[in-house]
Amino acid sequence: MAKQDSRRGTVKWGRALASIAGATLVLSGIPGRAAIAAETDWSNIAGPSRGFSAIAKVTVGGNTFEVVRGTDNGVWFRYNGGDFRPLGAGHSQTVDEPAIVQLQDRIVVSHRGLDGQIYYSFLQSPSANMWTQWARVPGDAWSVSGPSMVAIGPDLYVDVVQQDEQMADIALRFDSNGNINSASSWTKPYRSPILLVGPPGVGKTSLAHSIGHAVTRPITRMSLSGQTEIRDYFVGTDKAVYVGARAGQISKGAQKVPGGGLCDSGVSAARLGYQDYTVGPGHPMYNQQLQTLLSCIGTDGLVWTNSSSDGGDTWHGWQHPSGTPAVSTSTPSISATQSSFQITIRWDGTKSAQYPDNTEVGKRVNP
């Protein structure tokens, strides 16, 4: 990754988390927070490499896949903690953090190009850093934000904020070679409430992803149980973090996550438990799966977190993680295993000399 120093502008677009929880969930009697590994202090996780965004990561089958926006504005990739290397050929320049997701048995990365369009690439060989050439998502995205992706079965949904500050999304389906088999058009969400009724598996989740958002922000989806109730977290125009209602609470609309936290960045989120599939109530890992962590950069320029033991119905309160105060202007990235969270940030060396500017640092955080 390029090593020259250069500051990245503050990310203003709110990230959101859409979590899926069983409609029959009973909140009474849920145990407290599950025991996880001891919390650590912030440490350099990328050596001499520097980045203009936090490192985004997915873990599949015990292997880690990480992407970051380098200080050359290119997309960089590393596998299992090795060296960062440039990702893909053509249209690799970006002005936002790239997104990475597991789509069935493949890894896909996307980013916003300098032309405001969205590009994607599929991993072919992690050890050899072989990727398909960057390809443009069909249609005109005219995005002013980095993309957010969610995989639902064989379909990849991509969300952006367009030039008119309205959210738009598109659904893509690929063949085994990474070529698009079918694609919807870029669609703006409906503004009126819509109630979707039907048994599991009929497509309510996929449809709700396209039409159920009442906010003009991109989203990132996280599954809690594999059922069909959608829940979103997002940063509002007042800088507060909001959470969407559960099923049966539609009339209440989005509610502020309590504690008075205000964000100068987007909000990131993750859950514990199995990361490549979800379990239902009664499974030994179900309560672990409900452990949720949010993080953003507050108006003081420091990392803040808030955690929940019940999938986001109640919260433990906004706080700075323990240890050294962490300074950044970029949206944090949260990754999770079955039992622990890790937050990564791009260090703001203009506010703290503990690390050079744009150093990638991370820490394990308790929920």
Rank of each mutant, 00 (worst) to 15 (best):
residue 298 G to R: 15
residue 274 Y to T: 13
residue 61 G to R: 14
residue 95 V to D: 06
residue 83 D to H: 09
residue 213 H to A: 09
residue 47 G to N: 10
residue 172 L to G: 07
residue 158 V to P: 03
residue 225 S to L: 10
residue 130 M to D: 07
residue 338 Q to H: 10
residue 150 V to G: 02
residue 196 L to V: 01
residue 303 V to E: 01
residue 13 W to F: 02
residue 165 E to A: 15
residue 363 K to Y: 05
residue 187 T to E: 10
residue 75 V to Y: 05
residue 47 G to L: 11
residue 273 G to E: 00
residue 61 G to C: 13
residue 183 A to E: 02
residue 26 V to D: 03
residue 31 P to D: 04
residue 220 T to A: 13
residue 157 Y to L: 15
residue 256 K to A: 12
residue 303 V to T: 08
residue 160 V to C: 09
residue 311 G to D: 03
residue 331 T to P: 05
residue 29 G to A: 09
residue 38 A to P: 03
residue 129 N to L: 12
residue 101 V to F: 01
residue 285 M to T: 02
residue 154 P to R: 13
residue 182 S to P: 01
residue 179 N to F: 06
residue 221 R to E: 09
residue 348 D to E: 02
residue 295 S to A: 15
residue 176 S to N: 13
residue 272 L to Y: 00
residue 203 G to L: 11
residue 237 T to H: 06
residue 248 G to Q: 03
residue 219 I to S: 01
residue 358 N to E: 09
residue 83 D to A: 15
residue 283 H to Y: 00
residue 356 P to V: 13
residue 175 D to G: 02
residue 201 G to Q: 05
residue 363 K to P: 01
residue 306 N to T: 12
residue 359 T to V: 07
residue 21 A to R: 14
residue 286 Y to S: 05
residue 123 L to T: 08
residue 65 F to M: 13
residue 282 G to I: 05
residue 313 D to M: 12
residue 111 H to N: 09
residue 234 F to M: 15
residue 241 V to A: 14
residue 224 L to S: 04
residue 222 M to G: 10
residue 7 R to Q: 11
residue 254 A to V: 06
residue 41 D to E: 08
residue 101 V to W: 00
residue 38 A to K: 14
residue 151 A to W: 04
residue 37 A to Y: 02
residue 255 Q to P: 02
residue 45 I to F: 03
residue 127 S to C: 07
residue 361 V to T: 07
residue 34 A to T: 04
residue 25 L to E: 02
residue 274 Y to L: 14
residue 118 I to F: 04
residue 55 I to N: 02
residue 111 H to Q: 13
residue 265 S to E: 04
residue 82 G to H: 07
residue 332 P to E: 08
residue 283 H to T: 03
residue 6 S to F: 06
residue 50 R to K: 15
residue 93 Q to D: 04
residue 235 V to G: 08
residue 295 S to N: 07
residue 46 A to H: 05
residue 217 R to W: 02
residue 244 G to K: 01
residue 348 D to R: 05
residue 312 G to L: 04
residue 37 A to W: 02
residue 255 Q to F: 02
